[in-house]
Amino acid sequence: MTIALRTLDDGAWISVNDSREVGVSDIWTLPAREFCGCETPHVMLEGFSGVDLRGVDTHVIADAVGMCIDCGTRDGIESLPVGRIVDGEFKRYEPESVQSPSVDAVSSR
């Protein structure tokens, strides 16, 4: 089954099969010290720059720009898992759950 994935409206949200599934402004919990110096970074996503599928579990991963609401670090985030496809349906991960992205070493634009 083909899954249509895209970011739209200036990166305001991720569309999965023409349905708005993940939006900006939610606060995502990232693994300890992977985004900034905080023990548990709580990162508010400001915009999505890309989205893709990865792995046999068909994780939906997003590239985004975010800011830690505790220390103020702003950076790019690569491959943030935001959900997965199960039987052709998108199941969104809860932002409060700890995610495992790779943090972009380059400052965001």
Partner: peptide, 10 residues
């Protein structure tokens, strides 16, 4: 703002 806009944070 967030009343109607997808991008707005507040």
């Amino acid at each position: 703002g967030s009343e109607f806009c997808s991008l707005s944070i507040v």
